[in-house]
Design a protein around this nucleic acid. Structure first.
Length: 732
DNA sequence: TTACTATGGATTTTT
DNA sequence: TCCATAGTAA
């Protein structure tokens, strides 16, 4: 059965499956069936007598890991014993067993990005540095970048001696790392970093794990950073059976430390590497592939690779330039409605955009047209305030030695313990060399906190009480208790707003997740739940079984495919983004181009690029030119829906290209206020609306932007208020 | 301590 | 525009 399955692969895929020994680099173009290859490869290894236990498969998302595991298990039951997990969870699993060798307790907690940033703020405050001078997020980014490059605090200090600003960051880095260590905590980067340190300093431990993982596979290899690369190469050193799969053209996380050289230089780093190119695309029509190939061809930093397809030309691509962002969203909504009315499903449609702030106007268009949709990204579920609050309670209960979570929730809900009190407590803790929690328990001994003893005692009691309950209760029960005992739930219920109701729903969802976790894990405990929660992302929740259109950023769309794709706001200054245009670095523009390539190759049948002549951005009206990437696509495969020659001409004369004249930032050009929307009707007149039919105008109100809010009593739809800027009412 | 107003800043975010 | 944070008044 496995043999039949392997025989149905194309020659390159087959070779990739059968080449089991030695270093192997698989350059897998978009839609070339790489997951199929990987799963077959694992199954084949097992069939060849490799123990599943000796195989490690690394993916970037939990979702990918889950899917791969399922697919392997579908071929062979033994697949269940293969380690399929993300870099981070693999490292956690290793470190839980080896933590003591690196001076950590095996119950170390994991800081997510928010925890880390809060800690940085804390340190900045302690060092009396304004967060205007050094932005916590950029400090964190710098520290993260160093860890990714395996540069520890000491080494960084040496490197930055001469630069005043960097010297400061170096001090913060040192303090940050010290805090993590003393709180028995690791941030995301540490998970990898500490693991590599462990392997570097303890050859005996390394060898143990080398013997364990004789066959290693890494997916999305183009997205690995230096530390991940180091980790993998150390593990693979002894047996040399390292298979990496990636597509340099889909490297879109360079800004997060992903080092494209990992893939470009793989052959240099691993002698006798076998390179296999999967260029046969099974996803899209030829026009779409040609567009993708044509765009990516403009990048210099890449391994040459051209996608082929056996499919026919397929449909033309479409470009539409609307008058405004609102009209653009209306166009997209209309196209979806049209498609669905011809028998399509909402879930056939994906709307992709460069950044999250663009989602709102697009959503509004869908809402107006009554199209069901789901939005991915934006605020992460686990990033929501109410979720983080309750998780902080859980963390405080689980690991009271960690100050951060307690400090977060000490006054949530409000219980009269303010910043000054917290600062005093922290000081007392510092002076006595005890944890914040211990200081809290004996707060009555601190004279300066006299007036607050009552509140502090009550809070301490609450925590002790909850810790007690945690001993005997399941995680979900504990969450319920936290919600009740702290008054968190009743507070939200009292608020009685839509927002509060939404928060309550989210909290219920958190309880559900806990229940799910308990059902899935035999030895479920609080620490395990927190770990799981720390290492999941929202995209992990994406499923295609709901019949709704999907909105997400281009970044999140990687790895997915849809019959019809809209790439919205395809404009200079947005995509490519303002920063990539002005930075002058060719590599920035190349990454934008790869993102464009990713977007294009998500489409199976139809691909629309949409843009607007002017749009609201940051509160003001801006006019952007169509994206330069549009001109990189052969014109004969793009249908211009807006018959907009003038704009195209305009673009031609615009000197662009980061390597030539640096263009004026397009965002700085402000459009004059629009002409007053002309209407030839007024209250009492009969009008026709494209969707709502005939009605009588009841009222008209001029808006600041010159358009009109028009209230109409429709014969069939009742009273509706529409805006003249997009409603297109006609007098009858 | 909290609740209000002014101000400034604003990609992308697999873990 | 919309958000988070800093500063100020009660």
């Amino acid at each position: 059965m496995l043999n039949d399955s392997i025989n149905s692969l194309n020659p390159e895929q087959k070779k990739a499956v059968l080449t089991t020994e030695g270093p192997l680099l698989i350059l897998a173009g978009a839609g070339s069936g790489k997951t199929r290859v990987l799963t077959h490869r694992i199954a084949y290894l097992i069939e060849q007598g490799v123990r599943p236990y000796n195989i490690l498969a690394i993916t970037f998302t939990n979702k990918a890991a889950r899917e791969m595991k399922e697919r392997v298990c579908a071929i062979t039951p033994e697949g269940d014993d293969v380690w399929v997990s993300t870099f981070h969870s693999s490292c956690v699993r290793i470190l839980r067993r080896e933590a003591d060798k690196m001076g950590y307790d095996s119950r170390f907690s994991i800081y997510d990005a928010d925890d880390s940033e809060r800690l940085i703020r804390e340190i900045l405050k302690g060092m009396n540095i304004s967060d205007k001078v050094l932005k916590p997020s950029s400090v964190l980014a710098e520290i993260s970048a160093q860890k990714d490059k395996l540069i520890g605090p000491e080494k960084y200090a040496k490197l930055t001696e001469k630069d005043f600003r960097l010297k400061k960051i170096s001090d913060i880095y040192t303090a940050y790392q010290k805090h993590l260590k003393s709180n028995n905590a690791m941030d995301f980067d540490d998970l990898i970093y500490v693991c590599t340190e462990l392997f570097r300093t303890r050859p005996d431990v390394l060898e143990k794990w080398q013997d364990r993982f004789r066959y290693i596979l890494v997916d999305e290899y183009q997205d690995t950073n230096a530390s991940q690369y180091r980790l993998v190469s150390m593990l693979a050193q002894k047996y040399g059976n390292l298979c990496v799969v990636g597509d340099d053209d889909q490297s879109i996380y360079g800004w997060r430390g992903a080092d494209i050289r990992n893939i470009l230089d793989f052959e240099k780093d691993f002698k006798d590497t076998v390179v296999i190119r999967l260029e046969q695309n099974y996803r899209s029509g030829a026009n779409i592939l040609n567009a993708a190939n044509a765009v990516i061809k403009n990048n210099v930093m890449r391994k040459t690779k051209t996608l082929r397809t056996a499919a026919g030309a397929g449909n033309m691509l479409h470009f539409y330039r609307a008058r405004s962002d609102i009209e653009e969203s209306a166009f997209i909504a209309e196209k979806i409605a049209e498609g669905v009315s011809h028998g399509g499903r909402y879930s056939d449609y994906a709307i992709l955009y460069r950044n999250n702030s663009l989602s709102r106007v697009l959503e509004e268009g869908l809402i107006r047209a009554g199209i069901p949709y789901r939005l991915f990204g934006g605020v992460r579920f686990y990033g929501r305030r109410e979720i983080m609050d309750i998780l902080s309670y859980l963390k405080a209960i689980c690991n009271p030695g960690d100050d951060m979570p307690i400090r977060r929730i000490i006054n949530v809900p409000k219980r009269g313990i303010g910043d000054t009190t917290v600062a005093k407590l922290a000081e007392a803790a510092e002076e006595n060399g005890i944890s914040f929690y211990t200081a809290l328990l004996s707060a009555d001994a601190v004279p300066s906190l006299k007036g607050k003893t009552k509140q502090l005692e009550k809070f301490a009691e609450l925590l002790v009480d909850l810790r007690d309950k945690a001993e005997s209760e399941s995680v979900s029960e504990l969450i319920e208790d936290i919600l009740d005992d702290t008054g968190y739930r009743s507070e939200l219920e009292k608020e009685n707003t839509d927002e509060a109701r939404g928060r309550l729903e989210n909290l219920q969802e958190l309880v559900n997740k806990a229940v799910e976790y308990e059902q899935d894990n035999e030895n479920a405990d609080l620490a395990g739940f927190l770990e799981e929660v720390a290492l999941v992302a929202d995209v992990d929740a994406y499923t295609d079984n709901a019949d709704t259109a999907v909105l997400m950023t281009l970044h999140s769309s990687k790895g997915l495919e849809f019959p019809t794709v809209f790439i919205a706001a395809f404009e200079e200054g947005i995509f490519p983004g303002f920063r990539a245009i002005t930075s002058g670095k060719a590599s920035d523009m190349e990454e934008e181009r790869r993102l464009c390539y990713v977007g294009i190759t998500r489409a199976k049948e139809e691909l629309y690029f949409t843009s607007a002549r002017e749009r609201m951005q940051y509160g003001s009206r801006v006019a952007n030119l169509p994206s330069r990437f549009l001109e990189e696509i052969p014109p004969d495969i793009v249908e211009h829906l807006s018959d907009d020659r003038a704009a195209t001409e305009n673009r031609r004369s615009f000197a662009y290209g980061a390597n030539r004249v640096r263009p004026k930032p397009v965002n700085s050009y402000r459009m004059p206020e629009p002409k007053q929307a002309v209407t030839d009707f007024g209250p009492g007149d009969k009008v026709r609306h494209i969707k709502f039919g005939i009605g009588t105008v009841a009222a008209m109100e001029e808006k600041r932007d010159g358009s009109f809010e028009i209230t109409v009593d429709f014969d069939n739809m009742g009273r509706r208020t529409v805006n003249s800027a997009f409603a297109n009412l006609k007098k009858v």
